[in-house]
Design a protein around this nucleic acid. Structure first.
Lengths: 227, 227
DNA sequence: TAAAACATACTTGTCATACGAGTTTGTGGT
DNA sequence: ACCACAAACTCGTATGACAAGTATGTTTTA
């Protein structure tokens, strides 16, 4: 087994065995090198791998720390890479959204309170009022994230966030298309919010499903992958 | 911006811009160092991060290559870390399974063919016949992965695999509990397969949902987290 | 006494160099 | 045409050195 694997599995074992718990500071690189029997370069490569996966966090001059190991954070580590997926992969992810977002909407409908409904209503007012694409995109993200947060599962929220981040990166170039998209999108948002306000999981779920399906339609159309 | 970030974003940009496509070999480390203006150590740390996330693959003596960038592979990179989640996180993931596995079962019911049904039937025969926990675990995994593969979305299969890998790691210590678990588990598997064989998405989905719920019951019971 | 300023030790960040290990390639011989 | 082999190239690992940032304890100051 190479030095990098030794360091990687050694560090992972320290966490898995409970010798290092969430929030703990790792021993210094020098001490870890001695204990694991690898050079500092190999050790640092292993630390970087775990940091990329959301398990460790390194602070310059202070040390490396075990993260809180929340499921949402580990899932969030995918956000760096989903932006690299080719179009075919984006469609696979959109299919996951077609399952997860309706589920989140259904859960949210059962738990949402009046204040949150009012808050989301104001967000939709803003979206409908503006023509700035950047503002629309930001508020759209805010709307959907708020819903999945109400659903109460942080891992679900993080996963939906990661999946949505890719579709969000595209923008429609044709003015006519953009206008059509906005009309349908605004209507879809209102339908979702009606379901939430009525505490009707079935209605909210159906509206969310239709909303994702409509997104998928545009992704296919602009990627030239419709069959 | 530090040298590591320079290298990381530089490499990512090469892929995002299409200068490097899936399967391509990266320039040698020496050349990349010159081009990006960082030392070899910093460059290697960046390469390791992308490798941990499933974007790059390095072969000793040959070079580093861009992976196929399949959504399933990127999601699979989580498998190294989900094993580190504390129990509370496992329950969050189980809730995701309660959405995804029924969905996969429903899709599979609409697409499965007779040969696959027969194959799964034999797998269940084996599971029911053996008392070896390791064999049961392996066949159980085989059964569930086959179903999600039939569903036809590799990203979904990979995600379910990652989520299941954590629950799979536990084993029931009490003999009486293990026997009870096996009886219910075997019955659950049969119910799922009946739904698939009948090409009945609703039945398959409901059976899969019950199966995951039962798993969650045991996870809660053995983690002391039931409320 | 309390607070601010400072010096010191410690930790991570980066770089340079060297050599071992594995792969690829081209060459020469059969 | 095939095989054997050597050379060149690539990644893997180790070491040493210094810069940059942080934490801590001490000294100075109000």
């Amino acid at each position: 087994m190479g030095a990098l694997d030794t360091a990687l599995h050694g560090l992972r074992a320290l966490i898995a065995d409970g010798a290092l718990r969430p929030g703990d500071r790792l021993p210094s690189e020098g001490e870890l090198c001695e204990r694991l029997g690898v050079s500092r370069g190999s050790l640092r490569e292993a630390i970087r791998m775990l940091a990329a996966l959301g398990v460790l966090e390194t602070r310059h001059g202070s040390g490396s720390y075990v993260s809180e190991l929340r499921a949402a954070d580990l899932i969030g580590s995918l956000s760096l890479t989903v932006g690299l997926l080719p179009m075919a992969g984006v469609l696979e992810l959109t299919e996951l959204r077609r399952v997860l977002e309706p589920h989140a909407a259904a859960l949210a409908a059962a738990r949402i309170d009046e204040d949150t409904v009012a808050s989301l209503d104001r967000v939709l007012d803003e979206i409908e009022a503006t023509t700035d694409f950047e503002v629309q995109s930001r508020l759209d993200h805010e709307f959907h994230m708020a819903i999945s947060q109400v659903a109460g599962n942080d891992a679900l929220t993080s996963l939906i966030d990661v999946l949505r981040s890719r579709s969000r990166a595209y923008r429609i170039s044709e003015p006519d298309d953009a206008a059509e998209l906005k009309i349908h999108s605004d209507a879809g948002h209102r339908a979702i919010l009606r379901g939430l306000a009525a505490a009707d999981p079935v209605a909210a779920s159906a509206a969310a499903s239709a909303h994702v399906a409509y997104t998928e339609y545009w992704v296919r159309r602009y990627s030239g992958l419709d069959t």
